[in-house]
Design a binder for these strands. Sequence first.
RNA 1: GGUCCCUUCGUCUAGUCGGUUAGGACGCCAGCCUCUCAAGCUGGAAAUACGGGUUCGAGUCCCGUAGGGAUCACCA
Length: 551
Amino acid sequence: MSDCLKLANLLFPDIHETPEELMEKTFPARNLKQGAAVTRFAPSPTGFLHIGGVFASMAAERTAHLSDGVCILRIEDTDKKREMDDGVSIIVNGLADFGIRFDEGVHADGSESGDYGPYTQSKRRYPYHVFCKALVEKGLAYPCFCTAERLSEIRAEQEKNNVTPGYWGEYTEQCRNRSIEEIEELIKQGVPYVVRVKSPGKVGGRVKFRDIIRGDIEMEENFVDVVLLKSDGIPTYHFAHIVDDTLMRVTHVTRGEEWIASAPIHLQLFWLCGLKAPKYAHVPSIMKEDGGGKRKLSKRKDPEAAVSYFVEEGYPADAVMEYLLTIANSNFEDWRRQNKTAHYTTFPFALNKMSPSGALFDLAKLQSVSGTVISLMTAEQVLESVLAWAERYDKQLYDVLSADKQKALSIFSVDRGGNKPRKDIAKWNEVRAYISYFYDELREQSGEVLEIAAADQKAIIEKYLTVYSPDHDKDTWFATIKGMCEGLGFCPDVKQYKADPTGFKGHVGDVSSVIRVAVTGRKNTPDLHAVMTIMGKETVCARLNEYLERI
RNA sequence: GGUCCCUUCGUCUAGUCGGUUAGGACGCCAGCCUCUCAAGCUGGAAAUACGGGUUCGAGUCCCGUAGGGAUCACCA
């Protein structure tokens, strides 16, 4: 028996399977149609879902589903220190909120579905060890007994000498060349060790690979003996990536651009394992303007880094996704113009159309996209969404709206539908302010003051009270207001007034403004006739009289 | 610092082989429409980071500079 084989058996006495056998028996090739992409989103359960995570997972999900492929949600929980208790559910629910659906993987409660599991890395010890053993057997990996102290000494020395830091070169000699007896003894003594790859890379060597988004990239090859298995037997990200994406038959790896620097490690590991590397697409980070510069959206500094922000503000999930799509594929907006009512999932998203540079997150643009998305919804959809949001974030609004859904529907129907719907609402937390004057419970004293003499205002209201009828249709309603003008000293025709205002106190617009303020407390509202119709005679008259007393 | 990525209006970007009045969207401004505000329509201001080349001609090709970003762990 060769030393390598002996070492492999010493390190992994319980493993009796080869990677090839494992792949054949439990992780067979998928039966998918030609060109189907298998992608995955693989977050760590840190209890925080970053908007960049939604962006990356959207790229993965779209790529898979547009090609009739499979999208996997895998949890990378190999770092117990950063893990949070409900980390998994925060991520899974967060993604579900945005309509990102996975075909296989982990669910919010931690359960899993799919034939290529487990999908939680901490449960995949066995396959990692199978692959690691094979590497040891081939003399391509070895146990390293260096302590944390030794490692930092090495680092300090390298920094002093100005050479690339890392476990490589002369520093690897001791552990790389230990005899099998020596290793056996150290293990018997209980000395902790990691398993490192015996990197064949050379300083100055080059690797090339193609990134779907960035094109050809050439970098220095990896010559560091990176850790494969930590001392607790759990793999590092690098090794887990190789094993998992191979076994799960992932074809396209979409991940943050911060990984591009470690791509040479991954390419080397695939090669050493005798495996074909998947296609890579390194998606750009979403940036934030910061004092003239750009920086990555930060969890600490930027509330909008967390997806919970968008949920709390009440941006519809589709609106956030559409905004992200405008960043991801610039032709999305053209497509949207051509396909006004189509769902965004029918847009032919393409990884290779993504821009390689990180986009600044633009809340104003989100606002605009969202306003359009909402303007295209039916009143029923709006009400349903508002209620779902308000139930969690504005109980009073929820109660008021659900007390009379018909009224709520008619409010949301004002100027909705048709070619030019209003775009007053961009997120659900704006609804309260938008509709508050319809409800006595929500009404706030706005303090809006018109520049019209109190006496004239009084005269207008008093007169209007005598001619107002809730039965008037829009045209008669307006004709009635016009008809009041002459007697009150106002011009019934705006154009005429603008051409020559002499002799008038104002025009019909001013008259209706007085009524508007009296009825709604606002200078600006949607179509006043529609508003008054919804309110009903009782409320309208009450408000008019109330205004008379106040003025 | 080493390595890698990136760089067109304020923002997101379009820009096949080098020949464009450098296009669109958001935002901003103005006008029209209009009972107000939106919406809609029309128009406007607004960009090729800088410096060299190659070329009759460069946003586009080459070199350099600057700036921004990422990464260099038993973290992902």
